[in-house]
């Protein structure tokens, strides 16, 4: 693996289907070792983007670069674990044979495929079911088989399309543990979801898209900071008049609630928390607590995508007229 290089780099990809544009001029990059969330409401173009990354469909415009080279997702299938949104298995095949076949299709040689299949089936508690037909398995077990075939070949890049929908809660937790473990071991993870709580807990970077276009991307903390971060909790020892005056400065503070022990301050739009801290310190007061209360990713998402959707609707009305 190439240290801190880019594992996935997308430059201005566009995909049109009959009648509508699924993805428009989208760029993003995923750094090696990161856990990257591709977020957006249903129909935003997440699956289309992922399919273009996998070279299952070819973009009309733009370029996808994987591992810094020109090879496509299919050529690199031995390095990529892909879990599509539409999941399926050969119902009539024996579990073990199927897992081995899917690994071989990715370019793993037969012997290590067999070895790893035993290992993983055992790890996820399916070793008694190896010789059963997929059809005889419960839905939850089939989901495990699906997941095993995604990770069996120890991929360097995991691409998971809506991994947390369709799986039952127990399997979701199990899967999350495996993904987190692999991420800790250095595997790059790119996954799409519309459930922000999941993304918030797992991702270090995100890209939010809506209607096929990027709304925002970057490290999670940065995204949150830039889209919120306007609430600050302040507690000073031995407050003075200057502090009180500062907290009422309308050029910086929109609203301040002093609870005695601490004050919750809402900054004006565009107000910089760092400036507030600096001026607080220069009053000579001892700052005991200064905390930027971050908004949840969910709030950021609703704020941005809600606004985006509203704008798009207005646009539609305009073009219809």
């Amino acid at each position: 693996m190439n240290g801190s290089g880019l594992v996935v780099e997308i430059q201005g990809i566009t995909k049109r289907f009959a009648g509508h544009t699924a993805v428009r001029d989208l760029s993003l990059s995923v750094r090696s070792g990161s856990v990257y969330g591709l977020l957006g409401p249903n129909g935003a173009g997440k699956t289309t983007t992922i399919r273009m990354i996998m070279n299952i469909i070819v973009p009309d415009k733009g370029r996808v670069t994987l591992f810094g080279g020109s090879a496509t997702g299919r050529d690199l299938s031995s390095k990529i674990g892909y879990l599509p949104e539409e999941r399926g298995l050969y119902k009539k095949m024996k579990v073990f044979d199927l897992v081995v076949f899917l690994a071989e299709a990715k370019g793993v040689d037969r012997r290590s495929a067999k070895h790893d299949a035993h290992l993983w089936l055992d790890r996820l508690g399916l070793s008694d079911w190896e010789q059963k037909k997929v059809d005889d398995l419960s839905k939850g077990m089939q989901q495990k088989v699906q997941f095993i075939s995604t990770v069996l070949h120890a991929p360097e890049l995991l691409i998971l399309d809506e991994p947390f929908s369709g799986f039952d809660p127990v399997n979701t937790q199990l899967m999350k543990n495996v993904v987190v473990e692999m991420a800790r071991a250095g595997t790059t993870v790119l996954f799409s979801t519309h459930i922000m709580e999941q993304a918030e807990r797992l991702c270090d970077s995100v890209c939010i898209i809506a209607r096929g276009q990027k709304v925002v991307d970057g490290p999670l903390a940065e995204v949150k900071r830039n889209h919120g971060g306007s609430h600050v909790i302040v507690a000073v020892e031995q407050g003075n008049a200057e502090v009180d005056r500062l907290l009422q400065d309308p050029s910086l503070v929109a609203k301040a609630d002093n609870y005695g022990q601490y004050a919750e301050v809402e900054l004006v739009e565009g107000g910089d928390a760092q400036q507030l801290l600096h001026r607080l310190v220069s009053t000579g007061a001892r700052v005991g607590r200064f905390e930027i209360a971050e908004p949840t990713l969910h709030k950021v998402f609703i704020d941005l995508v809600g606004r985006e959707a509203a704008e798009a609707r207005a646009e539609e009305v305009k073009t219809d007229a």
């Binding site: 990529i80 892909y82 599509p84 999941r87 050969y90």
Partner: peptide, 17 residues
């Protein structure tokens, strides 16, 4: 048809042309 209806095709085309 089996590969299409069972949706395994998506996994297959991600590793096979």
């Amino acid at each position: 048809v089996e590969e299409k209806t069972s949706r395994i095709i998506e996994v297959l085309v991600s590793s096979l042309r």
